[in-house]
Design a protein around this nucleic acid. Structure first.
Lengths: 199, 199, 199, 199
DNA sequence: TATGAATGAGTCTTCATTCAT
DNA sequence: AATGAATGAAGACTCATTCAT
């Protein structure tokens, strides 16, 4: 009976649930899933520990909700690509913009990003969620390219490779993993490679 | 202090220490770091809980030891590239071999790989270890390429991009992340791209 | 953090906290600090182990709380001296009363007293607490003596010596440390000495 | 059979046993009984942990042995009083010397002293040992006084009071427990008191 | 709905003591 | 007589989850 998870209907309840998700997700991103406890989440959300379990099955459930709500905007800024396509000759510029934006957004949540990626690799449910989103992104890229009259063979596979190239590149630029790499050069190289791939 | 960690000298002790590392690392890979407790590790290694702490500072220390012992072989089979270089015209074949081998090895420890990658993103020490190895791999690739008379500008950056391309590709092939992708095609595409990059 | 110690507000909580202090302090006095574990304390207080850590930082914290609550009444019955002074000619009688009372109270907690004194000598925080109280006692004695028109030179030092004489004496009387001592005689001797000192 | 405690006969064994006692006692005095483990004791003594249990029943046994060996010299320097008596008119000077010596010796082992006193109050066996020694000291003082033709009534009780007065005084001087006390003055006061008591 | 006190199983870690060599 | 590796019970403390109010 009382064990059922209530789906909030009233505005105030919805707001409260979202507050829990937001606070919880932020804490988890900051400190890690196993290093964040429910008491902290409740406190950060300004609610009691008890109420958390009225909206969520368990701690893990909060994480999943957080990902559903925030993963798009935080992890896939490539979605920022012009929805209606672009002029072929602007391809390099468009790629450059995407990368810049991507880097910009990543900077906002260094800790967060690492943590979530960690969970993508350790949690089945998170993993599923993440890869679905990744595929969605690939499809969208392919779609936009077609709108822009860039329609090579194996477009889906190429889009996917492009997405990974951009993703890996941004990672490195943002966190400068290796001191002896010239990242400006690398950005140019990656853009070259992608453009060449789609020729 | 009595907290000193004994560095085993006798054969049997060394074997025991390695048994603990192996068992512990396997369990951690299987079930996750936070879901594996020291009692299990000890049991799996066939020793008492106490002895574990004579060889290791703490649980985390076991993980690090495991990575030091296994990361090379598990994560970086690209090191399988012919040490003394190869004939330029065999480049495609060499790449193909590396990818095949990589995929082969990864298949051995699906769970393991995911878990470790997770830790790369959540644990400072693990992260350092991993990225050092990654750089080592990049340098080795560049070195071999030079030996094979493949010496373009920005070779280091290009080698790094190649490493990532291969790594990402292998990931996907091994775990078939996305059902509607043609991975055979993708392998060809990636090899094309790399070859083109080094022209 | 979630590690915050709750300061109980509700009556029942206060009662519970005090119950933990009382039970814990008694056990510690009975069996020694190191020989009393948190599970026992919790059980004796009729609560779970977890709740103990909601009210106290750690085991040591319980001890300190116990001392704060009970040390005055248990260790310093000299405070029973008439607050407003007394007639000079009653000095001997007043001293005699103090000693009698002291002995009486000590008898109540033979084990306890020994244990606490032990901790005064091995624990920084306990030590501080104890010596502050001791000094308070010395000052109070000096104050009362002045009110009673007993005002020799070096009154503070003399009060302190008196306090120690009384304390040592009571110890011995209470626990009859040495079989071949005549403690009745000794009480008289000590009182003589103190009176003489303040002449 | 092998559980029996060996009483060492050979010189080397005796030396080894004493080394264990010495090292163990020092460590215990320094860090406390419960904070010193047998591994440390063995290491400090330059022997294996196993051998410790050939000479001693258990850890506690080491402590007792240490007290038997060292308590006299460390705790009761009043024994430094001239064995054959002294001239009555030198009483003040003799007392002064004893106090000076006492303070001197205490300074050598501040930590140690506190620790042992702690154990006097928490350990039956230690307690017994200590109080026997204390009585011995009292008796010796009385004896010497008689030799010096100081023979009041209740000499034993008075000697005991004197011993305590000196002991308490030294404690305070050595560790300066209270900042606002004039200890030079207090030394004079205590000597006055003792002399007066024996008149 | 909401609170937050309470639970208690579970975790890492230590250490006195034993025992194979 | 000696070693030091090994044992494993015990302890302090945490935290997801429940429940009385």
């Amino acid at each position: 009976m009382s064990n059922e998870i209530r789906e909030p209907i009233q505005k105030r309840s919805i707001a409260k649930k979202e507050k829990i998700i937001k606070s919880g997700f932020e804490l988890i991103c900051d400190k890690g899933y196993y290093n964040t406890n429910t008491a902290e989440i409740a406190k950060a959300a300004g609610v009691s520990t008890g109420i958390v379990y009225q909206y969520f099955k368990d701690k893990h459930d909060i994480l999943i909700a957080g990902l559903n709500l925030y993963s798009d905007s935080v992890f896939f800024p490539i979605l920022a690509i012009p929805e209606n396509g672009f002029d072929k000759k602007d391809f390099r510029k468009v790629l450059n913009d995407i990368i810049s934006k991507f880097i910009e957004d990543h900077k906002l949540s260094k800790q967060a990003h690492e943590e979530i990626i960690a969970m993508v690799h350790s949690d089945k449910e998170v993993s599923k969620l993440f890869y679905e989103a990744e595929m969605e992104m690939t499809n969208k890229l392919a779609e936009v390219l077609i709108k822009s009259s860039i329609e090579p063979e194996n477009i889906k596979e190429k889009a996917h490779i492009a997405v990974h190239l951009i993703d890996d590149l941004c990672h490195e630029v943002v966190y400068h993993k290796h001191d002896d790499m010239n990242y400006d050069e690398m950005v140019t190289l990656v853009i070259d490679l992608i453009v060449k791939m789609f020729e």
